[in-house]
Structures are given as structure tokens and as C-alpha cells.
């Protein structure tokens, strides 16, 4: 099996300060990888470099494109990268309002990616939007409401529908459950798990919540000060951490 994403020696510096450095890994189709670490550990910098939002200073991010196999997304042209961004990639922001058009109806939000890839039949677009709203548990009668009228959890689910409607193969998630009530988080986690399983998605999830990665991620990458300090199977890293920092991280979680 060939990897879907191949990251090699990725580095990003902010002047003399390290954003992230020496990051290498392969992600295979259907795998969900969590990236954990404290604020400032470089996990968001890494995610943004992987998703093409930031240009890394060094290294390669090769993605298995449908037509040409592995292509370095760092050096590909911006139109190509954008095309990936609205077809094969999805990006779920922590704050739904960063990933949604707040002045556009729920249906329009979901339909935008379809229209961006030249869907030109209103009826079809609307049917797909209804289908996707249903999959994220938003009832059909809310399709013409704007996200401003939605609760935080609904906004986040709408963002997910908007991202997944074009059937992406790789989803980047930045703290997808951050800022939500615990009960809402659970519902979202359940939803994400189901979608990942049913669509065979690969995902990279950045979070500082170890409970989230335990439930969602197959693999874990632990970052500290811009460096990857430990990687492995999620439950193995959490139950048998090898690096001192991971041990500290795991032992610092409050038990309920």
C-alpha cells in the first residue's frame, strides 16, 4: 500500500524561533493521526504547513493525487494546491466561524464546494446539501437558516458537512471539539468516528485533549518545542509513554 501523505523533514521557522522541525511521517489511507502537545508546541504550525496554509522553510509534503500519484504540495502551483483544498482535502477549523460563511445559509455553505468544482444544477446541489445536513444531524428545515442562528455544536457539524460534501480523502482538523460543551463534544466525536469509518477517510487531528485522540486517532504524534518527541499507536503512547514529556502529559490529565 502506498501512503496517502508522505512528510519528510518538514521545518518551519519564525525568524530564529522554531515553529516545527524535523517532522517526518507517512499517513496511509484510512488512518487517523492525532498530534498532541501544549500551546506553542508547534502542532498548529505543522498542521498549517501540511494543509498548505503556511509555506514550510524546508522539507516535502507529498500527497497521493488521484491523477499523478505522489506530488509535493509545497512546490506545486497555488492553483493546484487550491484545487486539492476544495476537492481531496478538507480543513475543519476550531472555530466554526473561521470555516463557515456566516452570512450564507446552511445549504449555501454546504453547496459552495460543489459549485467550486463546477456543479451547476441547483436541484442537485440542494439535494446533496440536504443529504449532508442529515448526515451531520441537522434537520432539513434548517437548510435556509444562516449559521448565526445555530448553536456552537451545530455550527461545527455544519462546518464538517461543508468540508466533506466533495468526498475528500484527507481531513485536517484543528481542535475540532475545542470550545464546545462536553455533551456536544461527545456527539461530535461519535459523528466524526462514524464518518471516518464509513467514508474511509484519513485524518490529521491537532488537539491538546488526550481523550479526543484516544477515541478518534489510530496513531499519535507528541510534540514539544517544535520537535516530535514520540510517535506510535495511540493507546500505546498513552498507556506506555516512553518520553519524559509524554509521561508528564499523560500523568497530568485529571481523572474523572
Amino acid at each position: 500500500m502506498t501512503p496517502l501523505l508522505q512528510v519528510e523533514n518538514l521545518a518551519k521557522y519564525y525568524g530564529a524561533r522554531i515553529g516545527c522541525t524535523d517532522v517526518s511521517f507517512d499517513l496511509y489511507p484510512g488512518e487517523v493521526m492525532g498530534i498532541v502537545g501544549e500551546s506553542g508546541s508547534g502542532k498548529s504550525t505543522l498542521l498549517n504547513c501540511l494543509a498548505g496554509h503556511l509555506k514550510p522553510d524546508h522539507g516535502a509534503v507529498r500527497f497521493a493525487t488521484r491523477s499523478d500519484g505522489l506530488r509535493d504540495t509545497v512546490t506545486m502551483s497555488e492553483p493546484e494546491r487550491r484545487m486539492l483544498g476544495r476537492t481531496d482535502w478538507a480543513f475543519v477549523h476550531q472555530h466554526a466561524r473561521d470555516g463557515l460563511r456566516m452570512n450564507v445559509s446552511a445549504g449555501g455553505n454546504v453547496g459552495e464546494r460543489l459549485m467550486a468544482v463546477n456543479a451547476r444544477h441547483y436541484g442537485d446541489i440542494r439535494d446533496q446539501a440536504i443529504d449532508w445536513l442529515g448526515r451531520v444531524e441537522i434537520t432539513q428545515d434548517r437548510i435556509d437558516d444562516r449559521p448565526t442562528a445555530f448553536s456552537g455544536g451545530m455550527q461545527q457539524r455544519l462546518q464538517i458537512a461543508r468540508n466533506l460534501v466533495t468526498g475528500p480523502r484527507l481531513v485536517f482538523m484543528d481542535e475540532p471539539t475545542g470550545g464546545l460543551d462536553v455533551s456536544v463534544q461527545a456527539r461530535l466525536l461519535d459523528l466524526l468516528r462514524g464518518l471516518v469509518r464509513d467514508m474511509g477517510l484519513s485524518a490529521i487531528i491537532v488537539t491538546h485533549d488526550l481523550a479526543v485522540v484516544r477515541l478518534l486517532a489510530d496513531r499519535l504524534m507528541v510534540m514539544k518545542d517544535g520537535h516530535v518527541v514520540e510517535t506510535g499507536l495511540t493507546d500505546q503512547v498513552l498507556d506506555d509513554p516512553q518520553h519524559g514529556y509524554t509521561q508528564l502529559l499523560v500523568s497530568s490529565v485529571l481523572q474523572v
Binding site: R86, G108, E112, L114, M115, A116, V117
Partner: peptide, 8 residues
């Protein structure tokens, strides 16, 4: 794509 969103 956004332009058609307006029409949608």
C-alpha cells in the same frame, strides 16, 4: 464557486 453561492 462563491459567485454561484450568491445565486444559490
Amino acid at each position: 464557486g462563491l459567485m454561484h453561492v450568491k445565486l444559490y
